[in-house]
Design a protein around this nucleic acid. Structure first.
Lengths: 252, 252
DNA sequence: TGCTTCCATGACTTGAGGTCATTTGATGAC
DNA sequence: GTCATCAAATGACCTCAAGTCATGGAAGCA
C-alpha cells in the first residue's frame, strides 16, 4: 500500500544517491505537509490528489510515484500527525511526580486548550480512526500497535511501578481500557466544537467540561486504580486546574 | 400492511397510492437486503451499486432514484442492521433479575457465539463506525443518539433503579462510558476472527476470552458500579458461564 | 379508450484515481 | 567541457464508478 522508500543496500554511489535521497525526502515531506492540510480541511474523500499537486506546482503523477496511492499518501500523513503528538510521559517532571492520574488530568486539560491552535493533526487522527476505509484502518491499527505512539504501555508500567494501578489483571487489558476511553473521551470533548454532531452525548458548555474531566478521571481511577479508597473518593485528590498553555498532545 | 379502510382524509386515489406505496416499499426493502450483503462482503468502497442492481435484475438508476446516493443507501442499510440487534433489556427475565452486570455478561457471552451465524449486520455496523466518511458518520451518530437502538439509556436507568450503579454523577456520563467500552470491547473480541488485525491488542485464544470478559466486567463494575466492595471483589459474583446458544445481539 | 401519474430504464456525463512512455536534469567520469 | 547514466518528474491518457435525465411504459381512474 505505502511503498516505504527503496530499502536496498546501496553499494556504491553513496554521495550521489544520498543527496538525491535528501532532495527526494524533502519533496516527500512537502507533499505530506500540503496533503495534511487538504485532508484535514476537506476530509478524506473530498480532498483531491490533483488539487494537492496543483497547490504544490507539481504533476499529479509525481505524488503517485512517491506514495503509490491516495491511501498510501494518507497513511504517511496519518503517521506524521500521530507522531507529532506528545507521549503521556512527556508531561513535566512535577506532574509526573504527582502521579499517574495527575498526568492524565494534565493532558486532558491541555488537550482542550491546545486544539484551537493546532487542530490539523488532531483532525487527521480523527479521519484515520473513523473516516476512511476498513482496509486502511487495518494498516493504521497495525501501526498503532507497533509504535504505541502515545506511549501508553510505558505509562501504564509507570503507574504500576508507582503502585497506583491494580496489578491483578493483564497489563494489556489496562492499556486497552485506557486507550479506548481516553480516545473516546477526548474525541467527545474536542469534536463538539471542531465537528459538531460527530459524537453522541458530546461536550456542552465550557464550564461543564472541567467537571466532566474530573468525573471521567474518577471513573478511571476506580476502574483501573488500586485500593478500596478509590471507590468512594479519589485516592489522590485531583485538583481543579483551570488549564494553562503548554505545548503538545492533540489526542491521546 | 396499511389496512386503513376507505378514508375521508385522502379523498381520492387512496387505493392506488397505497398499493403503489406498498410495492415501492417492498422494492426498497429488497434493495436494502442485497445491498447489506454486498457492503458486508466487500466493504463500503469495493461494493458497487452497479453490481447490486445487476444482482437484483434492475437498473442502476432505480437505486439512485430510491436512495439518492450510495451514502444514502448505506445509511438505510446501516439503520436496518442496527435495528436488528436486540436491546440490553431484551435479555431473559431471569438474567435481568440477576442484575445489571449479569445482563452485560449475558450479552458479551452471547455476542461471541452469535457472530458466526449472523455476522452480516455486525459487519455493517463496523463499517458505519469506522469505515466510511466522516460526513456519513455524523449522520450515523445523530441516528444513534436519537434512537438509542441498544437501549443503553433505559438499561442504565434499570441499573440505577436497582441500586447497582453509582448515582453520584451524570447519567449521561455513565451511558457514554458504557457505550464506548462495550462497543470497543466487543469489537476487539469479535473482529479478531472476523477481521484480523483490525483492532490493537485483539482477542487471542478462545479459552482466554472468557477470562477477558470477566476481567472487563470487573473493571466496569468498579468503574460505574456502586459501593466499596466492588473495588476489591465483584459485588455480585459473576459466574463463569460457558456460553449457550440463544438469539440476538450482534453488537452492543 | 384515453388520461395521468409514477416509476423503471439505460445510455450518458462527470470526474477522480491511477498508469506509463517519455523527457528532464543532476551527477560523476573522462 | 562533454558525455553517459539513471532516478525523478511529467502530462497525456486510461479506467471505471457514481450520478443524471429524457424517454417509455404500466397501472389506476374516468
Amino acid at each position: 500500500m505505502t511503498g516505504n522508500g527503496p530499502s536496498f543496500i546501496e553499494p556504491l554511489r553513496f554521495g550521489r544517491q544520498s543527496s538525491s535521497r535528501a532532495r527526494s525526502a524533502a519533496k516527500r515531506s512537502r507533499i505530506i505537509e500540503i496533503a495534511m492540510h487538504r485532508f484535514a480541511e476537506n476530509g478524506y474523500h473530498a480532498a483531491r490528489v490533483g488539487d494537492m499537486a496543483a497547490a504544490l506546482g507539481i504533476a499529479k503523477g509525481s505524488i503517485f510515484q512517491h506514495f503509490g496511492s491516495k491511501d498510501g499518501l494518507f497513511f504517511e500523513v496519518y503517521k506524521r500527525a500521530v507522531r507529532s503528538f506528545p507521549k503521556y510521559l512527556d508531561a513535566p517532571a512535577e506532574v509526573r511526580a504527582a502521579g499517574f492520574f495527575h498526568v492524565l488530568q494534565y493532558w486532558l486539560v491541555r488537550t482542550e486548550h491546545l486544539l484551537r491552535e493546532d487542530w490539523i493533526p488532531y483532525r487527521i487522527s480523527l479521519l484515520g480512526n473513523y473516516g476512511t476505509d476498513l482496509a486502511l484502518k487495518r494498516e493504521i491499527n497495525r501501526f498503532l500497535m507497533a509504535e504505541d505512539p502515545y506511549g501508553t504501555v510505558a505509562f501504564v508500567r509507570f503507574g504500576l511501578d508507582r503502585g497506583e494501578l491494580r496489578n491483578d489483571m493483564d497489563v494489556e487489558m489496562i492499556v486497552s481500557i485506557l486507550d479506548w476511553t481516553m480516545e473516546r473521551f477526548q474525541d467527545a470533548l474536542l469534536t463538539a466544537e471542531l465537528d459538531p454532531g460527530l459524537f453522541r452525548r458530546q461536550g456542552e458548555l465550557p464550564e461543564k467540561k472541567e467537571a466532566r474531566i474530573l468525573q471521567f478521571l474518577s471513573i478511571l481511577q476506580r476502574a483501573i486504580g488500586i485500593g478500596e479508597a478509590a471507590a468512594a473518593r479519589p485516592r489522590v485528590a485531583l485538583k481543579k486546574v483551570s488549564g494553562g498553555s503548554a505545548a503538545g498532545r492533540g489526542r491521546a
